[in-house]
Design a binder for these strands. Sequence first.
DNA 1: GCCCAGGTATAAA
DNA 2: TTTATACATGGG
Length: 277
Amino acid sequence: MNIKSTINGVCFENSMGIDLGLTFDCGQCFRWAKKDNYYIGTAYGKTVEISAKDGLIYIEGTNETDFRNIWAKYLDLNTNYQKITQEISNLSPEINQAVKLYSGIHILNQEPWEALCSFIISQNNNIPRIKKIIESLCENFGQKISNSYAFPSAKTLSRLSVEDLSVIKSGFRAKYIIDAAQKVVSDEINLEKISKMPLDEARKALMTINGVGPKVAECVLLYGMHRLEAFPLDVWMKRVMETLFKGQKPTIFGPYAGVAQQYLYHYSRMNPEKFKD
DNA sequence: GCCCAGGTATAAA
DNA sequence: TTTATACATGGG
């Protein structure tokens, strides 16, 4: 990829066609805030501002080294999404339409621990409040980095009590966060190893954490471990379509099809009439 | 007040 | 194995 340094960051041609709004606001991540003409967010302990203009993507607050080591991977800039979306398009007219509308979504490479915590917090919750709780978690227990806060480590959170966590108002989820942190610190849960396990084994391991069920496990695998390859796309798609046509939300996440899932999620929200019986 | 939110643990059928 | 209910909190 051809990148250039700017005064306080880098810029590069948006040849992969990433759509920042769709990518950051589709529900896969919770720490990006939309400003006037850019998104500001924190990942891997670094805060940056990302914007798109005239076919270029600008990342402010970074350098070429961090771009290559962190942001190119985080934003999944080296995956051929155009090829994926073509495959998806052939599956059905609905998917084809959805792909047209939402073809700039990238599945991010988020940190496994952050994804695990975030999706524990997401259960029986809504996105604005999920974001608030996570921001509060970072402000109260994360390391300060300039004007922002890193996501707190498992080690930090493992020492907290439910009362300590009451400041973030996560409700009944507090005990789950602490259990996850303690299992990670004791190495009973090794996210690095789990990320390389066969899918069913990995899912089983994640679900030994109190408060992690099939849905949270899928989100961690998909968004925190980038296990996009693990499900056959057609099998997953069938599940989602069946769920949608039953009038329910697609609550089980998939593969590589995470891409398609995101399309479908948006598509079903934007065109609810098409998904009524 | 009542209902719901990208669910899960628990008890009971 | 499948089905009902509570769970903390805040917004509509």
